[in-house]
């Protein structure tokens, strides 16, 4: 058999194989894994890889959406359908304290992310007793992520200690932990934004239509182009929503997610714009602009 010329695997095939391997390692070793599902394109790609990893079985874990109640309407619509198509249970957690206090991105700034997302995630993991949570984060997103492990170990209070991470050699991932401790696992660590887009195109994966350009009501505020997604958006004096052809490169809470003006209505055009553009994708997120190393600080506190 050695006379055959080597079969060349493409970079996407190798990335997919690596991600599948990671997903199966956790499925085989963790007691109660869960997949964090944010409805964005990275989640969509990760969910698709999971379906392939365990086919013809459905992925042997539920999906968890840590909801802030401020996501785009279109995201809520795709959420249920995606879970159903995958044959997976969908769990939705909303931080009851944030709900009671009416925490929102307009009045509460950083507290909004902290309470709904960081605290909400910890609550959900504790509530269901999950010991391993898959996330769709990639190493190319941000500098501090470049050093993140695939298996990221968290203490019983969900803290991440960058100085105390386990070495990861070959493809041998150490999933051992004491009771109460947990793992965050990033199967898509080695994918880039372009890889994700290409995979979505090749595998024909359904994504939220907001990734494609369409005329939508918008206002310009603090350097971000925001979409007025529902009536909860408090307009400031002098602001009138204006229809613009926009799309989103990344999706989060709609009041915190900046759009880009675009005419790209299909995947090829989106990728084309992405390749020709000169700003990186996280720039559309208000959360990263506080301080240069802000993501690292958030992670230490338990943000995904």
């Amino acid at each position: 058999m050695s006379e055959l010329p080597p079969k060349r695997l493409t970079h996407l095939q190798r990335l997919e194989a690596e991600s599948i391997h990671i997903l199966r390692e956790i499925a085989a070793q963790a007691e109660k894994p869960v997949m964090l599902y944010s409805v964005g394109k990275d989640s969509a790609a990760m969910l698709h890889v999971a379906k392939k990893a365990f086919f013809p079985s459905p992925p042997p874990f539920p999906l968890l959406h840590v909801d802030t109640t401020w996501k785009f309407k279109a995201m809520y619509q795709l959420r249920e359908k995606a879970a159903q198509d995958a044959g997976m249970e969908l769990l939705v957690h909303k931080n009851p304290e944030a709900q009671a206090q009416g925490i929102n991105p307009f009045d509460h700034g950083a507290l909004h992310t902290d309470m709904w997302k960081t605290e909400g995630l910890k609550q959900a993991l504790d509530k269901y007793g999950f010991d391993a949570a898959f996330g769709g984060a990639r190493r190319d997103e941000e500098k501090s992520r470049a050093k993140e492990r695939v298996f990221s170990f968290r203490s019983a209070d969900h803290r991440w200690d960058p100085k105390n991470q386990r070495p990861e050699l070959w493809n041998l991932y150490n999933a051992k932990k004491a009771k109460g401790e947990s793992l965050r696992v990033f199967p898509m660590s080695n994918w880039t934004e372009l890889d994700i887009w290409q995979y979505i195109q090749l595998e024909n994966i359904e994504i939220v239509p907001l990734y494609f350009a369409a005329p939508r009501p918008t206002v310009e505020r603090d350097g971000l182009l925001l979409m007025v997604d529902d009536a909860r958006f408090p307009l400031r004096a002098g602001e009138t929503p204006k229809m613009r052809s926009i799309r989103f490169r990344t999706l989060g809470c709609y009041p915190l997610t900046g759009a880009v003006e675009s005419e790209a209505t299909n995947l090829s055009e989106v990728i084309q714009e992405m390749l020709l553009t000169t700003t990186s994708e996280r720039q559309g997120r208000a959360i990263d602009q506080d301080a240069s190393a802000s993501m690292e600080k958030k992670k230490q506190e338990g943000y995904f």
Partner: peptide
């Protein structure tokens, strides 16, 4: 810029 689909076709076959 000229032919994004041709570009993507090219880039799908990259090795790693």
């Amino acid at each position: 810029g000229e032919d994004i689909d041709a570009y993507l076709e090219l880039h799908q076959h990259k090795s790693m």
